[in-house]
Design a binder for these strands. Structure first.
Length: 429
RNA sequence: GGAGAGGUGGCAGAGUGGCCGAUUGCGUCGCCUUGCUAAGGCGAUGUACCGGAAACGGUACCGGGGGUUCGAAUCCCCCCCUCUCCGCCA
């Protein structure tokens, strides 16, 4: 959420920002919010004056008696009746304002490229060389099924499409990746967290997924709870409603959790294999720090680097892209995606997504801190990035490190989780 | 699931219809005393909104929402959360 003052003072910038994100309907919310705000500010002085009168009169009342009291009482009743209509109006205006304001997207930062969708994201870095196989590389699902490592048919039978079951060494590799990711981040000072997977609407709203992301979310209506699509939701919400002290910041967390996504509206997209699935495991890094743009930028670089270090340890070629306006979400100010080379896609596929929000989420979450040398409480800045999401990350691992006979070379960094083996699988091709 | 207790300022904890935006303690900040450490004395210290250049003035907020009343932290209803006991159970 943006400060209403920002809307008042930089109306054009906010409107342009929404348009840069290709959200014209959300840009309209800016004008609606400002209109309601104007109405409210017209109403408030009158109403406050009446309240003031009621208050002081009420105090005098306590000392009165008899006929004098009766007369006073009549007058106060009349005032009350008059106030009721205005208070009703105030209530509705405030609720409407809140609603429109919550629709206004965060301002995209200056380093967000112009563009309509993910085809216009801008590559900022490329690392590693794409391997020359010397044979026709197979897609991960062919290798996986031939090895008996993955079963899509039975998964679909019991749970529907976009599901999978991992077996044997691939199940171990899946776990290895996640363990490596957590250990890497713990070494770097991040506090490991095992968060709730079912959360209230407030957490979804606070992180900016609601309103807007309801269709993407599995919901347990009976309990009013939502299955998280990322642990960003519970972990960023962790200190929601709290007043932290500057000394407690930055908070750096790493969470491993299951994630659930309905993938509504993606029919026919990435239907084969492990790329787009309803349920997966993800290790996520989350940072909460003071309201300082320079520090946010530094954190953003750091969390991207953390993910890059993991990919380098996995010996995978990747590139970093600056996500353009049209591909940016409502709450983000700027986002880098990391895309890892996937031979079956003959291209790079998104494996990581690093966002900075400044105070947009914190404002929605009521997440503040008290400054060291006095002054007003400030809203925190928040950021997050994937460390590893699996099974998606298994795609480049299987496809880039496959050998002609269908066995898999295990990167050195992961061998220790697989009993020290350098190769897994048996010759199947 | 059943029974009970409770949710108040950064924290702890009083307050049962007008004298309460709220006693007090802790913490924090400033000053003073004491020559260092420690301790003590005095004062200040909530958040948000509206108006104002500012000084300042006004309003709202005692878990959330409704209600009673001229007036609600205080009374009534609904919801959420925490704790204790019982039951059930991974």
């Amino acid at each position: 959420m943006l400060d209403i003052k920002v809307l008042r003072e930089n109306t054009d910038a906010v409107r342009r920002g929404a348009l840069k994100k290709r959200m014209p309907d959300r840009a309209a919310a800016v004008d609606r919010a400002l209109q309601i705000d104007a109405e409210l500010r017209l109403l408030l002085p009158t109403l406050d004056g009446m309240r003031s009168e009621q208050k002081s009169a009420g105090k005098a009342m306590g000392k009165l008696a008899g006929a004098e009291r009766e007369a006073f009482l009549e007058k106060q009743k009349a005032l009350k009746a008059e106030m009721q209509a205005l208070e009703e109006k105030e209530k509705h205006l405030r609720a409407d304002l809140q609603q429109q304001l919550s629709l206004v997207p965060n301002l995209p930062d200056d380093d967000v490229p112009e563009g309509k969708d993910d085809t216009e994201n801008v590559e900022t870095k490329r690392h590693g060389t794409v391997r020359d196989f010397g044979f026709e590389p197979r897609p991960h699902y062919e290798i996986g099924e031939a090895q008996g490592w993955v079963d899509f048919t039975r998964a679909a039978d019991m749970a529907g499409s976009r599901n999978y079951i991992l077996f044997g060494d691939l199940a171990l590799l899946h776990d290895a990746v996640l363990r490596f990711a957590v250990e890497l981040m713990v070494e770097r000072g991040f506090v490991p967290v095992d968060p709730p997977l079912l959360v209230r609407d407030a957490a979804m709203f606070g992180t900016g997924f609601f309103p807007g992301g309801e269709e993407q979310t599995y919901r347990c209506e009976k309990d009013g709870l939502n299955l998280i699509g990322t642990s960003e939701v519970p972990v960023t919400s962790l200190h929601g409603g709290e007043m932290l002290t500057e000394e407690q910041l930055p908070k750096k967390y790493v969470a491993r959790s299951a994630c659930f996504r309905r993938e509504a509206g993606t029919y026919g997209k990435d239907t084969r294999g492990l790329y787009r699935v309803h349920q997966f495991q993800k290790v996520e890094q989350v940072i909460v720090d003071v309201a300082d743009r320079a520090r946010s930028l530094q954190h953003h670089r750091d969390i991207v680097q953390n993910a890059e270090d993991l990919l380098q340890a996995f010996e995978l070629p990747y590139r970093v892209v600056a996500v353009c306006g049209g591909d940016l979400g409502v709450p983000q100010a700027m986002k880098y995606d990391i895309e890892t080379w996937m031979p079956s896609r003959k291209g790079y596929g998104e494996t990581h997504s690093a966002s900075r929000f400044y105070d947009y989420q914190a404002r929605r979450l009521d997440l503040r801190y008290r400054q060291k040398d006095g002054g007003k409480p400030m809203y925190c800045h928040t950021l997050n990035n994937t460390v590893a999401a699996s099974p998606r990350i298994l795609i480049p691992l299987l496809e880039n490190h496959q050998q002609k006979d269908g066995t898999l070379r295990v990167p050195k960094a992961l061998q220790r989780y697989l009993g020290g083996r350098e190769v897994i699988g048996r010759p199947v091709f």
